[in-house]
Design a protein around this nucleic acid. Structure first.
Lengths: 231, 231
DNA sequence: CGCGGCTTTGATGTTCATCAAGTAAAGTGG
DNA sequence: CCACTTTACTTGATGAACATCAAAGCCGCG
């Protein structure tokens, strides 16, 4: 990680209140003065499995995937995350090294500060620590809930889930460019690349979606929701 | 929950240091004085999906399952947990109501105190709050890791995993009484009851285990580990 | 231009769920 | 304590869902 210019525009950042509520102004200024913003290009690795955890980082802009390696050409993706549903890594407070990797699937901007600074502030400020606890708890809970939701669906239901996720949670529109490969979708919902493709084609033939390369348009929203729900 | 007698033997409790490290003696006495110990019989529900979260509870003795309901006769089990790997519920700090249920699969003893008391202490004591954060983070992380491990295995590998889990993590012996039904195993590793039975029978025929009702004896440990690892 | 990675489709086979039917075990009320 | 009911367990037969294998087209990139 080579450092970019540290600009202290935390005041205007919508994430500030999210993660740094219940904090003294002096402490916040302290964080802001050492905070670093760094841009990553699509495909860049932000944090890697096995690396020592030194930084507290969170996503300001963009889209990332959190995943772990199974073997040389297969990963398991834990979640895709945008700015509002991703704070640092899951295990930063319980471990010294990352269990998971994070990489940018769209151009992204990450803010980071020394993790020890955050820990020190939390040590001296119970309200702040409780804020962190709430966030981390919520993030873990969402991951577990989503995993359970996915695992009870059949393949068609899982694909429907992914399409709805990007359409509703990320892009908030019916037509969007898929930021991930078919293989990555497969790695998120535990199936083969071929079947991801096959089921997308089925949806196209059934008039539920239109496909043009990476561009997806959801035509029959209601039907996709039914497939997601009952599948 | 009808209350049992509250005995203040926290000093001797091996869990005290685990969950209540970095705490002033006066605060600890405060907790101990209001702490309640309650015994549950096998099958009893300790906390139920949808209930309001009022208590901070942790398992002192026994074995429980954490799960959620899919429909009238099917659950998804998130994990089986013993005293050392279970603290309260996952979402106590991020939500007002339980998303999951907990019930005893063996006779169990639970300690609990008012959740607000814990929150208040944490608010005023950053070190204590950070201790909680570490624990909660570790618990979530373990659940996510285990779920990923299971989902990449085939059915034989999953059954092997469950047998090794009970043998190594819970009972620490080669011969043990399964505390759960075949159906519950199925609900943990997302497969059908019939296939759990079928694969257990296969393992028996292959000379890997011996089965007599609920009693399981692992005969060929090495082979079971291989099936778990490569399956 | 040519190479490698991503995508697509079809053919084939394996794995697993479903259905059905029967046995054993465990709880329940007389 | 026994008849009764219910729940758990077991096995086999069948079919559906899904993975694997193979082959070819497409696209971006050096």
């Amino acid at each position: 990680m080579d450092q970019s210019i540290a600009t202290c525009d935390c005041q205007g950042c919508e994430l500030r209140s999210l993660f740094f509520e219940n904090i003294e102004t002096s402490e916040l200024n302290n964080i802001c003065s050492v905070k670093v913003e760094k841009a990553f290009n699509k495909g860049d690795v932000i944090a890697e499995e096995g690396d020592e955890i030194k930084l507290f980082l969170y996503l300001k802009e963009g889209l990332v995937k959190i995943y772990r390696k199974v073997d040389e050409n297969r990963n398991q993706i834990i979640k895709f995350a945008g700015p509002l549903d991703f704070v640092s890594m899951l295990s930063v407070f319980s471990d010294t090294h990352y269990h998971y990797s994070v990489s940018a699937i769209e151009d992204s901007v990450v803010c980071y500060v020394d993790l020890n600074l955050i820990k020190n502030i939390a040590h001296n400020n119970g309200k702040f620590a409780m804020g962190l606890l709430r966030k981390m708890s919520k993030i873990s809970d969402d991951i577990i809930k989503t995993t359970l939701d996915i695992r009870k669906k059949n393949l068609r239901g899982r694909i429907a889930y992914v399409l709805l996720f990007f359409s509703q949670n990320i892009y908030k529109t019916n037509e969007f460019e898929l930021p991930v490969s078919r293989k990555e979708i497969a790695e998120l919902i535990e199936m083969t690349t071929e079947n991801v493709i096959r089921i997308l084609s089925e949806f196209r033939k059934d008039g539920i979606i239109k496909i043009s390369g990476k561009t997806i348009e959801i035509v029959d929203f209601k039907r996709l929701e039914d497939i997601c729900h009952f599948g």
